[in-house]
Design a protein around this nucleic acid. Structure first.
Lengths: 230, 230
DNA sequence: CGACGGCTTGATGATCATCAAATAGGGTGG
DNA sequence: CCACCCTATTTGATGATCATCAAGCCGTCG
């Protein structure tokens, strides 16, 4: 890794999990998505399972009156589209240009049946999604606006830092509205909390979509994480 | 089963999934739990996976300052304690007297390796938990107090009704504080919303822990579910 | 340059959390 | 069986947080 200047963006820590679906079959297909292009809708038949190859996938649910809850952001290496009953129970679409590797659900299930290690991988995928989901429950149900935004930044920051780093600079991968719908709040509140963090000297905002965390420790405290790594 | 009077409690619709872990091995153990007795804590090694046999298991996370988020309630037939990394990432304890069937995680994984249908069951468990979880995200992130409480009652009511039933009577399996922590609100708000629903004629509260839903349709509308079964 | 979308900032109000007190319910022991 | 106590729940009053409405700003792109 090369020397870092104050404002240089970090690159994400590589994900060892990436690419594991390769080699399971030749029936794969690389799908290119443009910004906001949907991968599937709520209620669609879950004929395919996807691995994010490039870019970002946003999963969300929408209430009849338009309120939206962003369920999560999926990065390269992540699996999207798992379903227990063959029906998708949420929408997923690209948050910018993206590529995904698709795999027929039926075929993957068949492969899983023959190769237990593939089944195990799928199970790990599902259960680790469950784990991450639990932290977000706490965020949505317990935390105040300040803690929500701090937690979100910390979550991102962790993707770019190694243990013990004091500061880091990275780009926000999504718009304010996506952040707001992810945190169960509004764009105005997100904006206000960001400026509050900037004023407090915890972060800098060189550009609207670039965050420089000056004090990871302080950010962790504001996020109210019980994580013992802090 | 005996005849039903107006105020008689319904019994839950039987769960076909129940008991599937039976017969996978002799290494099972039936654990009896008394009220509030913990099954495991956040951070414990996930040496066992459990199937609820009787009673109710409450899973939750707690922030350093005491705030609690109830992740979900597990009923007979449900699986508790799945983990992707061998560590529990939440606490689970009994909400009243309960029995669970425990099974060593390592052994279950070995069995899953030999018998793909068991692996598939586990995968279905995990992914269906993921599905339910998504609806709750919407509840926590988007819905107002009224909608939260209505959604909760509806969720319970569905366990006791068949498609098309107009009314149903059932017992609330948990205290107000558990409901509040599940819905990301407070006991006072839950109480107020319940009386509001009673005043509106949507429900009755013969006892503090017994709910009689008079109008499922109205309840569904108040819950803002996009569910097409209504 | 002008227009547009996204973001910030300000002002106001509603919802809901908090604090406080009264009531109901359930269980125990006399 | 009743009185009592402890906990859970309801109800009320108040205030803080945050959503909403509105306006101005910034960066981008045609």
């Amino acid at each position: 890794m090369h020397a870092q200047t104050a404002t240089q963006l970090s690159t994400p820590v590589p994900d060892q999990q990436a690419g594991w679906m390769e080699g399971t079959s030749h029936a794969q297909h690389l799908v290119k998505l443009s910004h906001n292009e949907p991968l599937f809708y709520d209620g669609d038949e879950a004929d395919f399972i996807y691995e994010v190859v490039e870019g970002l996938i946003i999963s969300y649910n929408i209430l009849p009156d338009g309120r939206r809850q962003v369920l999560g952001f999926s990065y390269p290496g992540d699996i999207v589209g798992l379903s227990h009953d063959g029906i998708h129970h949420h929408c997923s679409s690209a948050g910018g240009a993206a590529k995904v590797r698709s795999m027929p659900r039926g075929m993957l299930m068949r492969v899983a049946r023959e190769r237990p290690e593939i089944a195990a991988k799928l199970l790990v995928c599902a259960t680790s999604q469950l784990s991450r989901v639990q932290d977000h429950f706490v965020l949505l149900g317990c935390k105040c606006a300040q803690e929500k935004v701090a937690s979100f930044l910390l979550e991102l920051a962790k993707r770019y830092t190694n243990e013990g780093d004091r500061s880091v600079t990275f780009e926000l991968p999504v718009k304010r509205s996506d952040i707001a719908d992810y945190l169960g709040t509004t764009i105005e509140t997100v904006s206000r909390q960001l400026t509050k963090l900037r004023t407090a000297g915890v972060i800098d905002l060189p550009q609207t979509s670039v965050v420089h965390v000056r004090d990871m420790i302080a950010l962790g405290q504001l996020a109210e994480v019980d994580d013992s790594t802090f």
